[in-house]
């Protein structure tokens, strides 16, 4: 009974999560005429990789993926670093105005990214950071910090107080407690935060579009928007699907590794002390 429930639940999960993605994958293998045949075909009748090669002929996609990885990894590390410190203080070091600080973060999480386009465009120009991935890294980190701080605060609060008290009696400093006790125990929360922050950065479009206008620094979502047909109005749907499939696989791989690395790394750290 339990196994049946589990199996059907998992089957639903797989169909739900993969359905549209599989559709994109099948689309990416269909030749020109089959893409919009009426009624639609499900499996490509003469599968071809023309859209995949077309993507690389049109745009430097390996470059875009590299840039997205740099921006995603950079902003995730900065956001997690800053958020761990802040969340530790908010959750564990009775400080004044902690409630107000949390509320202020929430308020700032509501600022629509589109609104930031103009002031940040200005700021980047004044600091000489136009077309710099560093600017985008900092911005993505900031956009994610409210979420990361809230998330980690919730997880840090869940750690039993006796453990921290014992560590303090052992003579550990606050930084040591954070590093050796709090972070390892909150590893699931850290990993989840890292994954969500990384993917946010991977998909962010509005700011990446206006801040990075040179092809050698552009990121994946902007790159996909650059795919075009031979004529205006034409949407090269086969190529767009191919690009989506190609750019999703590395992010899933990166996320799996990311999770292992964080969980593994922190647990090891905790044991070695």
């Amino acid at each position: 009974m339990r196994r049946l429930c589990l199996a059907s639940g998992l089957a639903f999960l797989v169909v739900f999560s993969l359905g549209p993605f599989v559709w994109s994958f099948l689309t990416s293998l269909k030749g020109g005429r089959e893409l919009f045949s009426i009624p639609p075909t499900y499996f490509p009748q003469s599968p071809s990789l023309e859209h995949y090669t077309g993507v690389f002929e049109q745009r430097p996609f390996a470059r875009y993926i590299g840039n997205s990885l740099i921006v995603g990894a950079g902003s995730t590390l900065i956001a997690l670093g800053a958020a761990s410190l802040a969340a530790y203080a908010l959750a564990r070091l009775r400080i004044r105005f902690s409630g107000a600080f949390e509320k202020a973060l929430l308020l700032l999480a509501l600022v629509p990214p589109a609104l930031l386009v103009i002031p940040l465009h200005d700021a980047a120009r004044l600091t000489g950071l136009s077309n710099s991935r560093l600017a985008l890294i900092l911005i993505h980190a900031a956009l994610n910090l409210p979420f990361a701080v809230w998330m980690l605060t919730a997880f840090f609060r869940g750690i039993p107080g006796e453990l921290l008290e014992a560590a303090r009696l052992d003579g550990l400093s606050r930084v040591q407690i954070l590093r050796r006790i709090v972070l390892p125990l909150a590893a699931p929360g850290l990993a989840a935060t890292a994954i969500l922050v990384f993917i946010f950065s991977w998909n962010e479009f509005a700011l990446a579009l206006t801040l990075l206008t040179r092809d050698d620094v552009r990121t994946v979502p902007v790159g996909i928007a650059m795919l075009s047909g031979v004529t205006v109005y034409e949407v090269p749907w086969g190529q767009i699907s191919a690009a989506v499939v190609m750019t999703t696989l590395p992010v899933v791989a990166a996320v799996i590794l990311f999770q292992r690395w964080i969980v593994g790394g922190l647990t090891a750290g905790a044991l070695k002390g």
């Binding site: 950079g74 900065i78 000489g128 077309n131 560093l134 040179r214």
Partner: peptide, 19 residues
């Protein structure tokens, strides 16, 4: 790791915004 990740980015940032 952070510094390494940012270095190439910072390097590119040096380029004139004029491309």
């Amino acid at each position: 790791i952070l510094a390494v990740a940012c270095l190439p980015a910072g390097g590119c940032g040096k380029d004139d915004s004029r491309g």
